[in-house]
Design a protein around this nucleic acid. Structure first.
Length: 441
RNA sequence: GUGGGUGUAGCUCAGCUGGUUAGAGCACUGGGUUGUGGCCCCAGAGGCCGAGGGUUCAAGUCCCUUCACUCACCCCA
């Protein structure tokens, strides 16, 4: 036999049932929260015209777009995120606004994989289209908060800032428009490399010493118990866009206060976010303990839809990174225990009694009980071992004795106890026992 | 795109300065149990030591090349 080489592309993964069952539970939890907030499901194609995606993410992002030519000579690209395709769709169709939708789908980036980073990964997006109010931003932040809480996260921090505030600060420091993105990208690293590190990076990028000192000292200046926003409002009083930004942030804070979720929210002037299309409030979630970048990121993108239709429609949204969430949950031992899909295994005593087993497994299935019949002629020992390894909680054994008496042996794999039940009673008994085994998760 | 680490049994790994038949734990198979799993005991199977080339009397071990994986940077979910 000739073996052919087989492997999967770097940064992609196969999901075997043991992982995928858990993964689906995490997705189901997030989806449930999204729907609890009234967001409705939507999907778009994985493949778009390259033109649709290009020049939406900035220089860095553009390099990472998977792009190729199809058989018809068209330039196509795999979606890089779920936000730009949403914007394209919103430009194409009329929907009732304010519109809230969610989408849980894979996206592709030609990145170099590392911990919590893949080339094919899933994003869980929730967006609101058609509301320019900060309420919408607050709603999305609140949603992020709820989704994480439902998954069991407690120690997380949702950092919130406003692009307009950053613009105001840059204006105040006399930084050129073209250099702003680069400037704030450095500022964004303060938590990682410290403010001195940021400064030296900015100097090496040839920013004016005066501009750097002026802006950084303002951002970092905090007295004990001071309110950052209040302080900035005074300093930046002469910059209208900054004043506006601060008012927005305070409104968001009020809304979040009404939702009673202020404890995990932190206003952070150093937060910048890399994507080009953000125009207003921006936010991301970081977890301190196992540190692997952000697990959610989002913000307002009021001009993005307009790049397609010419008609700007305000929009805001967030994206939860499924694999990062799962990676952290794994490290923190927060994942639900893996359980079998089958609730009952119907053993096959031997070849001559397979018909009986098929009859019983059919009855169980008709009663809505997830059941499988063992599909080889193996010794009972082997079949029970199979149930044990797969964590199937109940086994039904139908041997010659049971066949004769019209009974079945019902075995509880957790306790090891078993009993004989008449065939008529079997379904009722199985249902009852499954009901008693309330899954801990 | 830049830099570091690692490739030995299905999985996790050991293998000292190159030296004869390459090891462990878990998993697997058979037996101890005649219709019964988990624990225990006994036995067994399973490796071109990632691939290619080189140095040497001798290479899992040293050198070169290549592929793969992984971590960090950039950027990001």
């Amino acid at each position: 036999m000739v073996s052919t080489p087989y492997q999967i592309l770097k940064g992609t993964r196969d999901f075997l049932p043991s992982q995928y069952i858990i993964r689906k539970k995490v997705v189901a939890s997030i989806q449930q929260t999204f729907e609890e907030f009234g967001f409705e499901p939507m999907d778009t194609p994985a493949l778009e015209y390259a033109e649709t995606l290009e020049e939406k993410y900035g220089e860095e992002g553009a390099r990472l777009i998977y792009k190729f030519t199809d058989r018809g000579g068209r330039d196509v690209a795999l979606r890089y995120d779920l936000t730009v395709p949403l914007a394209r769709a919103m430009a194409m169709y009329q929907v009732e606004k304010p519109f809230r939708r969610y989408q849980i789908s894979p996206v592709w980036r030609a990145d170099k994989p590392q911990k919590g980073r893949f080339r094919e990964f899933w994003q869980c997006d929730a967006d609101i289209v058609g509301s320019a109010e900060t309420w919408a931003d607050a709603e999305v932040i609140g949603l992020t908060h709820s989704a994480l809480r439902k998954l069991g996260f407690k120690d997380f921090s949702i950092r919130v800032n406003n692009r307009k505030l950053l613009n105001g600060i840059a204006l105040y420091g006399g930084i050129e428009k073209e250099q702003m993105a680069s400037f704030f990208r450095s500022v964004d690293k303060s938590e990682k490399i410290g403010w001195e590190g940021v400064k030296s990076e900015l100097f090496s990028k040839h920013f004016q010493t005066s501009a750097v000192e002026k802006t950084i000292s303002m951002i970092t200046e905090k007295g004990p118990g001071d309110d950052i926003l209040e302080k900035l409002r005074q300093t930046l009083a002469s910059i209208p866009i900054a004043v506006e930004a601060i008012a927005e942030l305070e409104e968001i804070r009020r809304c979040l206060g009404s939702m009673g979720i202020e404890q995990n929210i932190h206003f952070d002037v150093s937060l910048a976010r890399g994507l080009d299309y953000y125009t207003g409030p921006i936010f991301e979630t970081v977890i301190e303990k196992p540190r692997i970048g952000s697990i959610s990121g989002g913000g307002r993108f009021d001009d993005l839809i307009g790049t397609f239709s010419g008609d700007n429609i305000p929009a805001t949204g967030t994206s939860l990174g499924l694999e990062r969430i799962i990676t952290i949950m794994e490290e923190l031992d927060m994942l639900p225990a893996n359980a079998a899909v089958s609730e009952v295994l119907v053993a096959v005593f031997d070849r001559s009694l397979v018909d009986l087993s098929f009859r019983v497994v059919s009855e169980l299935r008709s009663a809505g009980i997830r059941s499988e019949i063992y599909l080889k002629e193996d010794r009972l020992k082997k079949q029970l071992n199979y149930a044990n390894n797969k964590r199937i909680p109940l086994v039904v054994i139908l041997g010659p004795d049971e066949c004769q008496k019209g009974e079945a042996v019902l075995k509880d794999m957790r306790s090891g106890t078993q009993m004989s039940v008449s065939r008529e009673e079997l379904i009722r008994k199985v249902t009852q026992m499954l009901g008693e085994m309330v899954a801990p998760d």
